[in-house]
């Protein structure tokens, strides 16, 4: 039963990943990506880590929507051009992909020989929010701090980038506000 479900899930994950890169329509590609994130979240659930699974859905699947909006609003044309700009990039991509897969495969096989078949941990509260929180803020406090600083810098950068010459919008809005007030006073 579990194996069958796992196989179905694996097929969906690989299929949606392929769909993401092969789809010529950017909207469909974004949807495939969302499907991929959700099925990976289900995989986490299978392995007994509900916290990670739900964070995966909230953060990744939720944020794909922003990507989607970017596609609609900024790109306009959802269909990608059929021709390739970079010559021979497909061949190179396949070759590099095969190399990466080979390295990953060897690492996994050699590791499995060392430690035996990897099984999910069986502790009752494994992956509970309390445990993850404790681990994050004691054992891994430095990476957490570094990540949060990076995110803060990224946020400040994003705000700076959008400020630029965008003051005219605010002036316009102010003008609208003033006009409304004047109308009300009349």
């Amino acid at each position: 039963m579990t194996t069958a479900l796992y196989i179905i899930l694996a097929v969906v994950i690989v299929g949606s990943a392929l769909g993401t890169i092969m789809s010529r329509n950017a909207v469909y590609a974004a949807l495939y990506l969302a499907l991929n994130f959700m099925s990976v979240a289900l995989l986490y659930l299978f392995l007994g880590a509900p916290f990670i699974a739900l964070v995966q859905v909230t953060v990744y699947a939720g944020s794909i929507m922003v990507l989607f909006i970017f596609v609609i609003m900024l790109l306009g044309a959802e269909r990608l051009a059929a021709s390739e700009n970079l010559r021979g990039q497909r061949f190179l991509a396949i070759a590099l992909g095969v190399v990466l897969l080979a390295i990953l495969g060897t690492v996994f096989i050699s590791r499995a020989e060392l430690t035996g078949i990897v099984t999910p941990p069986t502790a009752v509260d494994f992956g509970s929010p309390r445990q993850i929180g404790t681990a994050l803020y004691t054992q891994y406090w430095l990476p957490v701090m570094i990540t949060s600083m990076l995110l803060l810098v990224a946020t400040v950068g994003a705000i700076l980038l959008t400020r630029g010459e965008g003051t005219s919008i605010r002036d316009n809005l102010k003008r609208v506000d003033e006009k409304e007030q004047a109308d009300q006073e009349e």
Binding site: L54, V55, V57, T58
Partner: peptide, 14 residues
């Protein structure tokens, strides 16, 4: 589930 509130957040976000 021990992540009930997070479940609600996840469903809201999708």
């Amino acid at each position: 589930v021990n992540v009930g509130v997070l479940y609600i957040m996840a469903i809201t976000s999708i």
